[in-house]
């Protein structure tokens, strides 16, 4: 067992553990913090898997921007006033059952697959090469994603203004 693989298993345990913690927290802020830990772990894993650029992006966007956004929202709308039931039984029970099924299917799938038993080689995609690759091969996708972000922007803008209008018109919108 090399250092790399040791690191991998360590990270895997951290990621899984922190994700489980995140999912089971009643306090949303705690949950998000745990998730940030998980995403950091993922970023490390990315690095380990030879994607340093992605690792950085993961930290910046996922663990950074996105989680912060969540945190903002959680703080803004102060959900703690509402005591939600953690894992209601009606959802939990079926979930446990299909969880077992998933586990069975997943094990079957992953270990039944012969081609991936071999250890993976070590390689690194340098940010330079990666960037070149993305823009050479997938600039159409990049453009599409940019459009997507525009749409998301418009959506957020619209939805954001919607509530202002609503509060102004007291429930009934002016056409």
């Amino acid at each position: 067992m090399t250092l790399y693989s040791l690191l991998f298993y360590l990270l895997a345990i951290i990621i899984l553990a922190s994700t489980v913690m995140a999912v089971t927290r009643r306090n949303l802020v705690h949950a998000i913090i745990y998730l940030v830990v998980s995403f950091f772990g993922s970023a490390m894993l990315f690095y380990l898997l030879g994607a340093p650029f992605l690792a950085a992006i993961e930290v910046i966007i996922y663990a950074g921007a996105i989680m912060i956004l969540f945190l903002f929202i959680v703080m803004m709308i102060d959900v703690d006033r509402h005591k939600e039931r953690l894992f209601p039984i009606r959802q939990c029970l079926p979930a446990i059952i299909f969880g077992l099924v998933y586990a069975a299917v997943g094990l079957m799938v992953t270990f039944g697959h012969s081609g991936s038993k071999a250890s993976m080689p070590i390689a690194v995609a340098t940010p330079n090469a990666f960037g070149r690759f993305v823009f050479e091969h997938h600039w159409l996708a990049v453009e599409i994603v940019s459009l997507l972000l525009l749409v998301a922007l418009i959506g957020a803008l619209y939805l954001g203004r919607l509530k202002i209008e609503k509060s102004a018109a007291a429930g009934k919108e002016t056409p």
């Binding site: 959802q91 079926p94 979930a95 059952i97 299909f98 099924v101 998933y102 069975a104 299917v105």
Partner: peptide
């Protein structure tokens, strides 16, 4: 969402 998951599970089985 639960139904989707269950259906997928059954399909997997």
């Amino acid at each position: 969402l639960l139904t989707i998951s269950i259906a997928l599970g059954l399909l997997g089985i």
